[in-house]
Design a protein around this nucleic acid. Structure first.
Length: 492
RNA sequence: GGGCCGCUAGCUCAACUGGCAGAGCAACGGACUCUUAAUCCGUGGGUUGGGGGUUCGACUCCCUCGCGGCUCACCA
């Protein structure tokens, strides 16, 4: 493998070789650390360090200022940054030469010394001993402008994290959101479970799956598109409250709010209906806001949003009527609805769409972008909701809601269909759609129907995208900003 | 998949109507014992995303391929 090295890489390789010639291991296994940088600063600033206390700190060199026989630099560890100060007469000629000639910005070092304050007041470690912990062979991005190239930021996220501290914050916030969700659900008696990612039949959402293969079993398997059908089997099994936070995979287009793999929270609650779930969801999200932000108001893409319950509940029919003037109840079949969408709105609906899909596209194009404040859109068409219980007063609708914040769909829920015979009928309807070319229709899942036929209590279920919640809480317009390693096309 | 925009030194960006590819940071050499985007003097560094074409001459115009961004379609 003939690597073409840039000038700067060549220089660093030469420094590496010189370190080794001098008997210095540029990649030692062991390091000495008495405090994190944040701890050291705190102790010093509180006056809790005797002036002669020697601390051992570690970190990456981020800036270097050599001024003849003394030098300043900043090192950074996971907790923060601190300035270090080296004097030739204090560290000796060998260590001083190591610092000025063989080390570079980006290298990891260990330093031992005492804390003091410079004339300008900056807390600084006066170095007595300096060691190399890891030599970097590639230069860091510009110290002042950082790393801006979006493609490099995603492909080499570590550089993004090094150069752009605010990016590090995003993923701290993401972890806190997940922790808060767990905290809420655990406190409410939910059991966290893990269900299969490799599934013999996919289901629980309208999406094309990724397909893989088990060689020994000679069996095609699907990466799950949702956790739903397994979690409901656990309700059947007698757990009354279960949840799972995990990765789902959908073989669909990539966009600012879609990544092929994404993280979803789903929970299922026996003896709850979709009204109960709405109350729980608004309570849960408000709890997350309290935990993560310390308040229930946030700004998303310039919109001030208040997450305080109760959230608005708006029937889908009314939402579409208000936004478009079209009452979908007045159009009992797909061709009639498609015609009015064309004539009145100038839309060009896919002629293969069923009525439910047409209604859903009206929601997506004319309603969703304007749902800035938290809103539950309730009562969806039956034909796009094969796992939801029918509405008692309107057989064409189901007890389902989606919730929207900041113009984005954040999650989906319903009173779960627990009539096994009706469930089989719904699957058969889906099967016909699948055969007719709807690649996102559900396949028939007889094993799930059998599970239902052993009896599932009335149950409410809910799913929400962790990635989109993180977008909301970090004010990011693109899902790639909240996924550490978003999917990108391979190079070559 | 369609449309638009972009890709120039390790990083951030320039380069007029087609006329010698440049700056700052980083790097290298030198000066400098309280600097902090250190400063000062000097030096090197380019397949201008890949390939092809037009032209006396291409970063610039044309074709094509790759990757990315935005957007539409699609997508709970």
């Amino acid at each position: 493998m003939d690597e073409v090295l840039s000038e700067q890489e060549q220089v660093r390789r030469e420094k590496l070789a010189r370190l080794r010639q001098a008997g210095i291991d540029p990649y030692p296994a062991r390091s000495q650390r008495s405090h994190t940088i944040a701890q050291a600063r705190q102790l010093f600033e509180r006056g809790e360090l005797a002036g002669d206390t020697v601390l051992a700190l570690v970190g990456r060199l981020r800036t270097v200022r050599v001024m003849g026989k003394s030098s300043f630099a900043h090192i950074e560890d996971g907790s923060g940054r601190v300035q270090i100060y080296l004097r030739h007469e204090e560290v000796g000629p060998q260590a001083y030469e190591l610092f000025t000639d063989w080390l570079d910005i980006g290298d990891f070092v260990g330093v031992q010394g005492t804390m003091f304050r410079t004339r300008t007041g900056e807390v600084t470690l006066r170095v007595q001993k300096l060691t190399v912990l890891s030599k970097a062979l590639h230069p860091l991005p510009d110290k002042w402008h950082g790393l801006k190239d979006v493609e490099t930021r995603y492909r080499q996220r570590y550089l993004d994290l090094i150069a752009n501290p605010e990016v590090r914050e995003i993923f701290v916030t993401r972890a806190r959101i997940v922790r808060a969700l767990r905290g809420y659900l655990d406190s409410q008696g939910f059991l966290e479970v893990e269900t299969p990612i490799l599934q013999p039949i996919y289901g629980g959402a309208a999406a094309r799956p990724f397909i893989t293969h088990h060689h020994q079993l000679h069996q095609d398997l699907y990466l799950r598109i949702s956790d739903e059908l397994y979690l409901k089997r656990l309700i059947i099994g007698g757990y009354e409250r279960v949840y799972e936070i995990g990765r789902d995979f959908r073989n669909e287009g990539v966009s600012f709010k879609h990544n092929p793999e994404f993280t979803q929270l789903e929970f299922y609650e026996a003896y709850a209906d979709y009204h109960d779930i709405m109350r729980r969801v608004e309570e849960m999200i408000a709890f997350v806001a309290d935990e993560v932000l310390g308040r229930r108001q946030l700004v998303y893409q310039g919109h001030e949003i208040d997450l305080s319950p109760p959230w608005r509940r708006l029937p889908l029919r009314q939402a579409i009527l208000e936004a478009t003037g079209i009452d979908f109840q007045a159009y009992p079949d797909a061709p009639a609805l498609a015609a009015v969408m064309r004539d009145r709105l100038g839309m060009q609906p896919d002629p293969r769409s069923n009525r439910g899909k047409l209604i859903d596209s009206l929601l997506g194009t004319h309603v969703e972008p304007n749902l800035i404040q938290p809103t539950f859109i309730v009562d969806y068409p039956r034909e796009i909701s094969p796992l939801a219980k029918a509405s008692p007063d309107n057989p064409g609708l189901v007890e389902r809601f989606e919730y929207f914040i900041g113009g984005m769909e954040m999650g989906n829920a319903f009173s779960e269909l627990n009539d096994p015979l009706e469930q089989r009928e719904r699957f058969l309807e889906q099967g016909r759609a699948l055969e007719a070319g709807d690649e996102e229709a559900h396949p028939v899942d007889e094993d799930y129907v059998r599970a239902l036929s052993h009896g599932m209590p009335p149950t409410g279920g809910f799913g929400t995208g962790i990635d989109r919640l993180t977008m909301l809480f970090t004010d990011k317009a693109s899902i790639r900003e909240v996924i550490l390693f978003p999917h990108l096309r391979s190079r070559e």
